[in-house]
Amino acid sequence: MKLCIITPWVVKGNGQGRVNYEIAWEAIRRGYHVTLLASHVAPELQQNSQVNSVQFSVKKLPTELLNEIIFAWRSAQWLRQHRQEFDLVLANGAVTWAASDVNLVPFVHGAWLQSPLHISRGRRDVYGFYQWLYTVLNARWEKNAFLQAKVVVAVSHRVQQELVDIGIAKEAIEVIWCGVGLEEFFPGAGNRKKFGLPEDVPLALFIGDIRINRKNLDTVLHAMVDVPELHLAVVGILEGSPYPQLAEQLGLSDRVHFLDNPSGIVPELMRSVDIFVFPSRYEPFGLVVIEAMASGLPIVTAITTGASELISPECGVVLSDTEDRKGLAEALCQLASNPELRHRMGKAARSVAEDHSWQKMAQRYVDRFEELSKR
Rank of each mutant, 00 (worst) to 15 (best):
V227P: 13
S272G: 06
E229N: 12
V227G: 13
H231N: 15
I173W: 00
V266I: 14
R211P: 04
K193N: 13
A247G: 15
A292Q: 05
I210R: 09
F285P: 07
G190R: 03
G286V: 11
Q249R: 15
L205P: 02
V201E: 01
M270D: 08
E268T: 04
L252I: 06
P198T: 08
E239A: 14
Y282K: 04
F185A: 09
R271V: 03
E174L: 12
S280H: 11
E229P: 01
V234W: 03
R255Q: 07
P228R: 07
L232K: 06
G188C: 12
L203V: 08
F258P: 12
V227K: 12
A292D: 07
V288A: 04
Y282E: 15
E199C: 02
V225F: 05
W177I: 00
F186T: 12
A172T: 11
F186L: 14
E171C: 01
G188W: 14
L259I: 02
S253L: 08
H222A: 03
F285W: 11
I237D: 05
I207L: 12
G188P: 10
Y243M: 08
F185I: 07
S253R: 14
P262M: 00
G251C: 11
P228C: 13
G208V: 07
F258H: 09
P242I: 05
I168M: 06
L217I: 07
I168G: 02
L238S: 07
L203A: 06
D254V: 02
P279W: 12
V235F: 03
L182I: 15
F258A: 08
N216R: 12
K215H: 10
I168E: 04
D274S: 09
G264Q: 00
S241F: 07
P198S: 05
E171V: 06
A294D: 09
N191C: 05
Q249F: 01
N191A: 02
L250Q: 11
G188Y: 10
V175R: 06
G251M: 11
E174T: 12
M293E: 08
V201M: 02
G179H: 11
S253K: 15
R271Y: 08
F278I: 10
E239W: 01
I275F: 11
F285A: 05
V289D: 03
E184M: 11
F195I: 08
V175K: 05
F186G: 02
F195P: 10
D209T: 14
A172H: 13
G286R: 05
E268D: 14
A169T: 01
V234N: 10
I168V: 15
G236M: 07
L205A: 08
I237K: 15
H257E: 04
N191E: 13
I275P: 13
R271W: 05
G188D: 08
H257Q: 06
K170F: 00
E184Y: 00
D274Y: 08
I275K: 11
Q245E: 15
Q245R: 14
L250V: 10
A204P: 04
G196M: 13
F258L: 11
V288M: 03
L232N: 09
L182V: 14
D218P: 00
F258N: 04
V175D: 07
L246W: 07
A247P: 13
E248D: 15
M270R: 07
A233G: 09
G181C: 12
M270T: 05
P284D: 07
S272P: 04
D254P: 00
